[in-house]
Structure formats: structure tokens, C-alpha cells
Simulated assay, not measured.
Amino acid sequence: MTAPPGDDRTTELIRWAAFSCALVPVVLLWYGSSLAGATGTALGLAAVTAVCRLLLRRSERGAARTPSEHPQDRAHHQEHHPAPAPPPGHRARGGTGAHRGTRHTGGSTPVG
């Protein structure tokens, strides 16, 4: 099985993160931090590294899947899963932009 192009960079990044998880507590102990504090820091860094690794791998898989998606697949999905209708009693909002229906005083110069 061939590795994705970004796999080498990801693996290297994870290795540096793991190295940092080991190095930071050693430095903390060297500069007089408590063993409990250094251990807590190491566990926190390891947890953050694990979550980042998981998210990075997931995004790589998603990026690898995206180019293979064809426009026909999206059209097929929209045919079988139309957008939900608004609940009864709600009116559709007209206009465009983020400030529809608001008053505008003066020009577009900053206040101050």
C-alpha cells in the first residue's frame, strides 16, 4: 500500500511532538519543578498530541477522498435528500446581506 504524499510530513511532525512530550518534563525537572508537575505536564502534552494526531489523520483521509468525489455524486445525494422545509408559521426572510432591515446613518467612515 502506498502512503499518501503528506504522510511523511505528518509522521515527522508526530515524532517531533512525541519528542517534545518527553523533553519538556525533563527540562522542567532540570529547572526545579516538582515530579508531579512534570508528570502532569507530560500527560497533558501527550493527550494534546494524541488528539492532534487523530485530527490530522482524519483531515488527510478527507482530503484524499475529496478529489475523487464527482459532481454526479452530489447531484444524486441532493435528489434523495432535499433541504428541509421551514416549520409552519415561519416566514421566509427577504433581502440580502447581514444588515437587512437596519437603518444606516451616515457614510462608511469609522467612528472615533
Rank of each mutant, 00 (worst) to 15 (best):
L29E: 00
L29V: 03
W30D: 12
W30E: 15
Y31M: 15
Y31K: 14
G32I: 03
S33P: 12
S34C: 04
S34N: 05
S34W: 06
L35N: 06
L35I: 08
A36C: 14
A36K: 07
G37C: 05
A38N: 02
A38L: 01
A38P: 03
T39P: 02
T39N: 03
G40M: 05
G40N: 04
G40I: 00
G40L: 04
G40W: 04
T41S: 01
T41A: 00
T41V: 04
L43M: 08
G44F: 04
G44L: 00
L45N: 04
L45Y: 01
A46N: 03
A46V: 02
A47W: 09
A47K: 08
V48P: 14
V48L: 12
V48S: 06
V48H: 10
T49R: 03
T49Y: 01
T49L: 04
A50L: 05
A50I: 05
A50W: 05
V51A: 11
V51H: 08
V51W: 12
V51Y: 11
C52P: 09
L54Q: 10
L54W: 06
L54D: 15
L55D: 04
L55Y: 06
L56I: 08
R58T: 12
R58S: 12
R58W: 15
S59D: 11
S59W: 15
E60Q: 13
E60T: 08
R61T: 10
R61Q: 13
G62A: 06
G62D: 06
A63G: 01
A63W: 05
A64R: 04
A64T: 04
T66V: 11
P67Y: 00
P67T: 02
P67H: 03
S68P: 05
S68L: 10
E69V: 13
H70W: 11
H70S: 09
P71I: 00
P71Q: 01
D73P: 04
D73C: 05
D73Q: 07
D73G: 07
D73H: 06
A75C: 02
A75Y: 03
H76L: 09
H76S: 13
Q78Y: 08
E79R: 10
E79L: 09
E79G: 07
H81E: 06
P82K: 00
P84T: 00
P84S: 01
P84E: 02
P84V: 01
P84A: 01
A85K: 07
P86Y: 00
P87W: 02
P88E: 02
P88C: 01
P88Y: 00
P88L: 03
H90T: 11
H90D: 08
H90C: 09
R91S: 07
R91C: 06
A92I: 13
G94A: 11
G94T: 08
G95V: 11
T96A: 11
T96L: 10
G97W: 04
A98S: 11
A98M: 14
A98N: 13
H99E: 09
H99Y: 10
R100D: 15
R100L: 13
R100T: 09
T102V: 14
R103F: 12
R103D: 12
H104T: 12
G106Y: 02
G106C: 00
G106Q: 05
G107E: 10
G107K: 07
S108I: 06
S108L: 07
